[in-house]
């Protein structure tokens, strides 16, 4: 049987990785602010359905993506209010959010199954798209692939160079110190949570509008959990999230390609390898830094300003 063309494989990986890339990037910002939101799956699937409904009713994929981001942000604020103002436990609330989101999306989606989303066109970038071979592979995707890439750069620059990014990181490293300096810890965290929700929503909508593209119950099928793993794997760094997303997405696509090409692959071993790799990365990081993990110090801790 034929061998696998690496360029074609790369193009497939770029598409397959976009949903987890978006969701993981959002969750990374949330976690950098010291909040652990395990509800990524619930926010993704909410984005998938509201994005689909908006795009289907209006005929505009763009409107679909915008709505998905808003929907994801809105449902994430449920988590935000509960954990930040009512000081509920983040782990439990995140899990409850996933349950709620899965139910809600399936309720909204009852009359939308089996329908087709309006087509999201592939971009044709002048010059770049016309490059031989590379142009077809790298520069003829739909706009969201590039939006996701731009967001990686944007988030990286925001965290590294802007004052707001510095404040966000400070809140994640020590909320008491940030509070003492006069920063509004809860507001910062709420913004981060909403941003994370918006990106998870976009990731979900990418599934229902581009990759599949139609609505089916439970269609995220665990992508949100993979995004969570990815953030850890990337040790909370934007470009590593990108690399990790392409690696995670790459393993699943490669696995299918190897099967299609007729190679003998232990499929179950490959499908559990991303998670084992994540654990390994975690151990290496924490061993090397003698316990000072790359994780934001306040991850998952409740903040309450004592007067």
């Amino acid at each position: 049987m034929g061998s696998i063309d690496p360029l074609v494989l790369l193009a497939a990986i770029m598409m397959a990785s976009t949903p987890i890339l978006l969701a993981a990037l959002g969750e990374m910002v949330v976690e950098r602010a010291g909040v652990l939101n395990l509800g990524v799956e619930g926010m993704m699937i909410t984005g998938a359905i509201v994005g689909f409904v908006a795009a289907y009713e209006s005929g505009s994929p763009t409107l679909g993506f915008v709505t998905a981001a808003l929907g994801g942000a809105l449902i994430s604020l449920l988590f935000g209010v509960l954990t930040q103002f009512l000081m509920s436990n983040q782990v439990a609330t995140g899990l409850a959010l996933t349950l709620f989101g899965l139910g809600l999306s399936s309720l909204i989606g009852q009359s939308y199954s089996g329908l087709r989303a309006p087509l999201t066109p592939d971009l044709h970038i002048p010059v770049l798209s016309d490059l031989p071979v590379v142009g077809r592979v790298l520069f003829q995707h739909d706009a969201m692939v590039y939006v996701a890439l731009a967001l990686v750069v944007g988030v990286w620059a925001f965290l590294k160079f802007t004052r707001a990014g510095l404040i966000l990181r400070a809140v994640g490293e020590s909320h008491d110190a940030a509070h003492a300096l006069g920063y509004r810890v809860k507001l910062v965290r709420l913004c981060a949570i909403a941003f994370g929700g918006a990106l998870a929503g976009l990731g979900g909508a990418y599934l229902s509008l581009v990759r599949v593209p139609s609505w089916t119950d439970g269609m995220t099928a665990g992508a949100g959990w993979i995004a969570l793993a990815l953030v850890v794997f990337a040790s909370w760094k934007a470009f590593r999230v990108l690399a990790g997303a392409y690696l995670f997405g790459g393993i699943s696509v490669l696995q299918l390609n190897l099967q299609a090409a007729g190679s003998k692959v232990p499929a179950d071993l490959l499908s559990m390898s991303p998670f084992l790799a994540t654990i390994l990365v975690l151990v290496i990081i924490s061993a090397r830094k003698k316990g000072a993990t790359a994780a934001p110090a306040m991850l998952g801790r409740v903040f309450h300003a004592s007067q």
Partner: peptide, 22 residues
């Protein structure tokens, strides 16, 4: 009742419990 309505119902129960715990 659709299964999803029950799921939303359970989700609401958890949210209310967690919210009021404060």
């Amino acid at each position: 009742l659709p299964a999803s309505a029950i799921q939303v119902f359970q989700g609401m129960l958890l949210m209310f419990l967690l919210a009021l715990d404060v």
